[in-house]
Every structure is written in C-alpha cells, then in structure tokens.
C-alpha cells in the first residue's frame, strides 16, 4: 500500500497522554466540587428534588434581579440561568404558597410571566429517580461487560474494551463536572448510549484484529494491530463523523431544551471513537507485549531449545481463543 504508514500504535504514549490531559482536570473538578460542598456534579431537580421553572418575562430581567426575587421565597441555594429569551430557575422544593408568592412577585417585577415549563419533584421521588439512575447505569454497564467477555471469549480483549469504556465515562463525567451542566435523568440516557457506542466502536476494531490474526501472518503483534486499526480507521471515522454531524444538528438547531442532552452525546461519541482508536488497541498491545515478555522469560528459563527462534514475538494472546497457555500451543503448531 502507500509507503508511509501512520503509526498509531508506535506513538500510543501520546494517545494515553492526551486522554490523561482530558481526564485529570475532569476528575480534579469532580473532587474539588465534591469537597467544596457544591456536589461533584450539578445535580438537577430530578435527583435532588425541587422546583424548576423555565419562564419568559414581558420585561427584560437579569439573573441578578430574578435571584433577588427568588431568594425571598426559596430557602437554600437556587440556580438562576438565562438563555436569549428564557429564564431558568431551580430551587429547593417550594411549598404551594411559596410557589404562588414567587410567581406573583415575578409578575409584579417583570410583567406577564409565561411559564414555559415547570418541574416539581418531591424529595422522595428525587431519591427514587437517583436510585433508578444508578441501577440503570450499573445494570447497563454490567450487561455490556458480560457481552464483551462473551463476544471476545477472552479476558484481555474484554478488559481492554472495558478500560476504554471507563475512559469514555470519565471524560463525559469530567466534562459535565467542569462545565457544571445539569445532570438529570436524560444524562443516564447519555451515559448508556455512550457506553453502547464506545463498545460498538471498539468491537469493530478488535474484530479486525482477530480477522487479521486468523490470517496468521508472521507480523509482530503491535504492527498487526496498527494495520488493523488503519484498516478499520475509515469506518470508525466515517461512522462517528456521520453520527456527530447528526447530533451536532440537534445541538445547534434542536432548541435549548435538548441542548445539554445533545452536548453529552456529542462528547461521548467523540471520545468513544477516540478511545477505540488510540486507547483500547494500545492497551491490548501493551498487555500482550508485557505478557509475551513474561512468557518469553519463563520459556527461556525452562526450555532454551525453542527459545529465540522467532525474532519478532508472535503474540501469545492472539488467537481467536486467547488464553495464557493456549497461545503457546497454537504457536508451536503453526510452525
């Protein structure tokens, strides 16, 4: 093929570094906000309980003015935000009288107040929704891990894919922690969709690796993985491009209500693709090389005769049924 080969695996250190560069600030933000008592993430009323209003006022209102009014009726911390024309108010649970009072006060300050949207979630419901959300993420993740393990019949592939998955979730969580975007029930959908997408992407690359391994070329494992990556690259990039194009349309044109949701999907799909190209396979290579070195040392100590016959180590965990001992057996058969 083309003489110049793009060496992704060879420069996998950069891939890891870039990931760390994104993940570490996110994790730092999670810890910082958690320690400062603001909550690691900006939990929405779905999970905390409380009232949420999206209103449009007749006369222009700044967030400061609105906050002054809200503080008269709501106890605890309230969040006031605004878009071009709408104002978003989030408070602790409001008693009916406080709600009436708040709306009346807003009307007297800013003229007619149209309530575009109102969510009122009791504290008990908030707790239930939170539990369900955690349950959904845990079950979703567990099922995906089971699926990968089943699909790859081998720990090494499964764990590499899981690590990439964890990476994607950390990035999404971290970015939501840094941007303080609201985390609500829809965010669970974002996480699970990202999980599905990320694994999907990783599987396609791993599939290619196994397809190439089955051809039994005498290629070094890291070279083979790099070639597989490049072969799957067009597909990976094209697919995430079309998906990102589609979701970007929702992000930019789909309206304020769905913007954060689309944002989460955008980030997740982007990192999902990134991790399957730059991290998942790289981890697989590192692990396999490490295992090979260890196996090589053990073998050299045991059996000098069959030792250094192959200059480039053929991977141990490479076959369709990778396993600690299986690779060695197959290799001797192959010769």
């Amino acid at each position: 093929m083309t003489p110049r080969v793009w060496d992704i695996i060879g420069r996998r250190g950069w891939g890891y570094a870039l990931s760390a560069l994104v993940i570490l600030p996110g994790v730092a933000a999670l810890i910082y906000y958690s320690a400062s008592g603001q909550g690691a993430l900006n939990w929405g009323v779905d999970f905390t309980g409380g009232s949420y209003f999206q209103i449009r006022t007749e006369r222009p209102a700044t967030t400061g003015q609105v906050r002054a009014v809200v503080n008269r009726f709501a106890t605890g911390q309230s969040t006031i935000q605004r878009s071009e024309q709408d104002i978003f108010i989030r408070t602790r649970p409001l008693a009916p009288q406080a709600r009436e009072g708040l709306l009346a006060a807003l009307r007297s300050e800013f003229g007619t107040v149209a309530i575009l949207r109102e969510d009122e979630v009791g504290p008990k419901i908030g707790q239930e929704l939170r539990n369900v959300a955690i349950l959904a993420v845990v079950i979703g993740l567990a099922l995906q891990v089971v699926y990968i393990s089943f699909r790859f019949k081998g720990l090494r592939y499964a764990l590499a894919a899981d690590a990439a998955l964890l990476h994607d979730l950390l990035v999404v969580l971290g970015i939501f922690a840094i941007t303080r975007k609201e985390v609500n029930s829809a965010f669970v959908a974002v996480l699970l969709t990202v999980v599905g997408y990320s694994i999907n992407d990783t599987i396609v690359v791993f599939d290619r690796i196994r397809e190439n391994l089955a051809l039994r070329t005498r290629e070094a494992f890291d070279r083979l993985v790099n070639r597989s990556l490049l072969e799957a690259l067009v597909r990976s990039i094209n697919t995430s491009l079309t998906t990102i194009l589609a979701i970007a349309a929702v992000f930019f044109f789909g309206g304020v209500t769905i913007r954060d949701f689309a944002f989460g999907l955008l980030v997740g799909i982007f990192v999902g693709t990134y991790s399957s190209i730059f991290n998942a396979s790289a981890l697989l290579v590192d692990w396999t090389l490490w295992a090979d070195r260890r196996a090589g040392r053990a073998r050299a100590a045991q059996d000098v005769e069959t030792g250094g016959a192959t200059p480039a180590p053929v991977p141990a965990g490479a076959g369709p049924l990778p396993g600690e001992g299986g690779g060695r057996r197959r290799r001797s058969r192959r010769r």
């Binding site: 959904a136 979703g140 669970v188 959908a189 699970l192 969709t193 599905g196 997408y197 694994i199």
Partner: peptide, 18 residues
C-alpha cells in the same frame, strides 16, 4: 455485533427509564 451493544443500552433505558 456492533448493534447489540446499543440495543443492550436501550433495553435498560426502556425498562428503567420514564
């Protein structure tokens, strides 16, 4: 194969989501 993962995610969301 690649679609199964998405279907797993949606199945969980369908069962537990509102």
């Amino acid at each position: 194969d690649s679609n199964v993962t998405t279907l797993i995610a949606t199945a969980v969301l369908f069962l537990l989501g509102s």
